[in-house]
Amino acid sequence: MPVSPGLFVDERADRVHVRLHRPETRNAIDQETVTALHAVCAALEEHPRILVVSGSDGVFASGADIARLLERRRDDALAGINSGLFVRVARLPMPVIAAIDGWALGGGAELAYAADFRIASTTARLGNPETSLGIIPAAGALWRLRDLVGEPLAKELVLAGRVLNAQEALTAGLVTSVHEPDELSAAADALADRIAANDPLATRLAKEVFHAAADAHPRADDEAQALLFESPAKFERMTAFLERKGKR
């Protein structure tokens, strides 16, 4: 898949690792990064695999590139440059894991919020300081964060500039586990291994139905289950389970 110099991509049979690498800007997300991540999304929409996103040099992503953000005007905001990307990341067919080491601020934090799973190193720091710069976090924090941690804490992060450390993020449920920095990549792979051990179609449909509109249930659940009840993997996996239990 085509990428920019600011991304390192490791493609495997069941997963793709994407590492943000713009050390001169602490992995700030610029237009080239957005374009490259869209290319990654296009490849994963065509050939669904787990996506693992991480940073480099002890930083996940410090947010948008402020020098370039300063130049953006009204039409840029209405184009939804980052928000459109993060919606696409969230809608990828297979689960997305954000492995957060060090700072994840602004747009960097919003990228992490778009993931299905967030795991952190002990050095992780997450926050949305956009209002201190005269803007708002408009790429998902104002609605995803409330769902993730609840309204009171979300407002403290967005309106009062609070930054959560790794333990605080774990307590709030924003991340599901905390690891030493040199163990974070292995932890992300271990989580991806657990996901990959399950039936890919069942995993894809479970994610799709999980995010369906409230009024789509239970019909969406029933339709997905109907498809899976006829799938070869269902018969193979259930037969193997019964054989292990000595019931066939």
Score class of each variant (00 low, 15 high):
Arg162Pro: 00
Ile81Asn: 03
Ala28Val: 05
Ile100Gln: 02
Ile29Gly: 02
Gly246Ile: 07
Ala216Gly: 05
Leu51Val: 10
Ala192Leu: 06
Leu153His: 09
Asn128Tyr: 04
Thr176Gly: 14
Phe60Lys: 00
Glu180Pro: 04
Ala98Gly: 00
Arg12Glu: 15
Pro48Glu: 09
Thr33Ile: 15
Ala214Asp: 15
Arg19Gly: 04
Lys207Ser: 06
Gln225Asp: 12
Arg204Gly: 10
Val3Lys: 06
Pro152Met: 12
Ala104Ser: 11
Phe241Met: 14
Glu156Ser: 11
Ala226Arg: 14
Ala190Pro: 06
Ala154Thr: 02
Ala197Lys: 07
Glu236Trp: 12
Val40Thr: 05
Asp76Cys: 13
Ser121Val: 10
Phe117Arg: 11
Arg73Lys: 14
Glu151Asn: 13
Phe229Arg: 15
Leu70Thr: 13
Ala112Ile: 01
Asp147Cys: 12
Pro95His: 03
Pro232Val: 05
Arg19Glu: 11
Gln167Met: 12
Arg88Gln: 08
Asn128Lys: 01
Val178Ser: 00
Ala196Asp: 01
Val158His: 04
Asp147Val: 13
Leu159His: 13
Ile136Ala: 15
Ala98Ile: 01
Val9Tyr: 04
His47Ile: 10
Glu156Asp: 14
Phe241Lys: 10
Arg15Trp: 04
Leu111Arg: 02
Val158Gly: 00
Phe60Ile: 03
